[in-house]
Design a protein around this nucleic acid. Structure first.
Lengths: 355, 355
DNA sequence: AGCATCTCCGGAAACGTTTACGCTCGCGCG
DNA sequence: CGCGCGAGCGTAAACGTTTCCGGAGATGCT
């Protein structure tokens, strides 16, 4: 716990000079800088983050806000985890650390209600990244409406200093449907993500529009609602497979649901891809671990996280910067579950080619 | 950005009184406390974390340090993710927030070398949780040797204020082997975790000792080294299955490796569990998503994380407290991959019964 | 020689809290 | 009546930085 005063005392200069030397200010002679730096090294000096934050009004910390309900903690969904890795890299490279906030905690004793804004705001964090929320949470809505720089993943909430990053969900879905159609399927069903969220809605919209583009009819019974988690994929698939005229292909809006679909098919004795083709969305690690390996629409989750970090850093450092709005391309990864594997290696098709 | 001064001014009392009212000090009258609290609510006052930390020397933040190499970011291993969820819960409930540190970042400009100790130390965080490191990293060793309260997951590093939490790895491994033997297997192989780490070594030791206890010979060619990730399980299994006298059962020291084993078996056309039984370790979400569903030794990862939080909080709040050392029990979860499923529902056996 | 201009540095205020100390009441008690 | 005491509150120091302002000395220019 060396302080800057001690450095000043031992080196015979003022704290101001020490501070300048440490921060690379030009107005300190090379010789004294050397001396101070050496001393700092020797005494294992580390500046106090708190003091620094207090005066500079910059904490170099960004808050990460995710849902942590008892049901489906977002931290347990591979999608968020991989985004988090990208976020960590991007933020770290720009000198920011990540502070984790969750939604299921009591506030720190103020006013009873817990409030991200309150906990994150003031001089706590320089900005925030929101994962797994749409605008329906009032706390999040307030956060988005505030002046704290903020990036929301997978939702466009507006707000003066609130941007977003998301994948090209609609195009990705179209890729999946087109792939299935190209394989000869005409009875293509979908298990949607959580409706009301951008990825849920957009992927459904992509399914619809590509069906239309291909001249296929949209059959209501071929659209079942899921929630991105495997259990809903399991149940949805059972429903679909028990239809009088079951689909020959299923587009699940997440890999986890696709895994659930595989399990359902397996239980019912229907072969994948022989009897029903399955394609997922995300390309989480699971996708290539599972049997049969999943054909899926890959989101570049690392890029999403990194883009969030970049956008946020820009907003933090330039108060005039417009909120970042980033769309990252998706691409189809063909594996076994769709029966579309022709080459020995994976085939991919990017969302750019969707036209 | 309301400050305590503004509250003081508007309410006609001194900042000291406001501070006391806000912090529930008894030496302030009930009436003024009410008035101040109301005002604080109305002005949306939040105390400055930085200022508070500066004077109280408590940040209420604990650092989470994990490996983030380019190869296998720990953040991508489901085990760490689930531990993180438990940690978040436990820490949050005790008023601590989590600050993420990674191993692949440049230091904040001091001395060139990045140092967790340096970045975490001083008044930055009140304590640290270390994930995915053994004592061979010099930075971590230094951290452990320091006076910062610290909990290491899956490694006992010693140190004056450094405790650990881990699962009963050895007993868990014995459970797995015993289960396999109970099913009639005599040629039981193992794919180890990373050797040199506690979970890697201990699970191997459990395999060995249970084999001995059962009167089975230990065959060197039945022990292949892995690294907890799926690729190593895949390669190890190929090697095992191509042996002249291949094992009839494989105990993989992680579920990810077990998944790799399943993939290898599938490729080679050997049936699971018909031709070879497989049991994993961890019981990550994947285990029940995969086909066949994985028999595995369940670690209570949530409990591990929570125990880390509890132990750390205690060490932080009581400087005299001895470092926490927590062992959490494991239990066997029988599913399809071992062929040992008798009842329609999962059967479990806890490590307590190993005797 | 006189003056302006740098270069390098010190003093001190400021950031927003907490808390030790001390003060002033009002009250009860001997 | 005088004293002590507790309740309630204010004053001010302290936490460790950054940064503005200014000053001393050296240097350059006319």
């Amino acid at each position: 716990m060396t302080t800057i005063q001690q450095l000043a005392a031992k080196s015979g200069v003022s704290v101001a000079t020490v501070s300048r030397a440490l921060n690379g200010s030009p107005e300190v002679s090379e010789s004294t800088r050397k001396r101070i730096l050496a001393l700092a090294q020797q005494l294992d000096y580390t500046p106090s983050a708190a003091a620094r934050t207090l005066v500079s009004r910059r904490s170099h910390v960004v808050g990460v806000i995710l849902d942590t309900g008892p049901g489906h903690p977002d931290l347990l969904h591979p999608f968020f985890q991989e985004v988090l890795v990208g976020l960590k890299h991007g933020a770290g490279a720009r000198g920011y650390d990540l502070l984790l906030f969750a939604s299921d905690e009591p506030g720190n004793g103020f006013g009873g209600t817990h409030s991200y804004l309150r906990r994150a705001g003031h001089h706590g964090v320089d900005g925030a990244v929101v994962l797994g929320f749409d605008g329906r949470d009032p706390q999040i809505a307030r956060l988005a409406a505030s002046n704290l720089p903020c990036i929301v993943v997978d939702a466009d909430l507006g707000g003066p200093r609130t941007g977003f990053v998301m994948s090209e969900n609609e195009d990705g879905a179209r890729l999946a449907v087109r792939h299935l159609h190209g394989l000869g399927h005409e009875r293509i069903a979908t298990i949607t993500g959580t409706l009301g969220t951008a990825p849920g809605d957009d992927r459904l919209e992509g399914y619809r529009s590509e069906l239309a583009a291909l001249g296929l009819a949209l059959r209501d019974e071929y659209v079942v609602e899921g929630d991105f988690y495997d259990e809903s994929g399991y149940r949805g698939t059972r429903r679909l497979l028990e239809l009088d005229e079951p689909p020959t292909a299923i587009f699940a809006a997440s890999d986890l649901m696709a895994a659930g679909a595989l399990r359902a098919a397996n239980e019912l004795g229907v072969g994948v891809p022989a009897d029903v083709a399955v394609v997922g969305f995300d390309d989480i690690g699971l996708a290539s671990l599972i049997q049969p390996q999943l054909t899926t629409v890959r989101q570049d989750m690392h890029a999403l996280g990194e883009a969030a970090a970049v956008g946020l850093a820009r907003m933090i450092e330039d108060p005039e910067a417009a909120p970042a709005r980033e769309l990252v391309p998706t691409r189809l990864v063909v594996r076994a579950s769709s029966g579309g594997q022709r080459a020995p290696r994976e085939r991919t098709l990017t969302s750019k080619e969707v036209g």
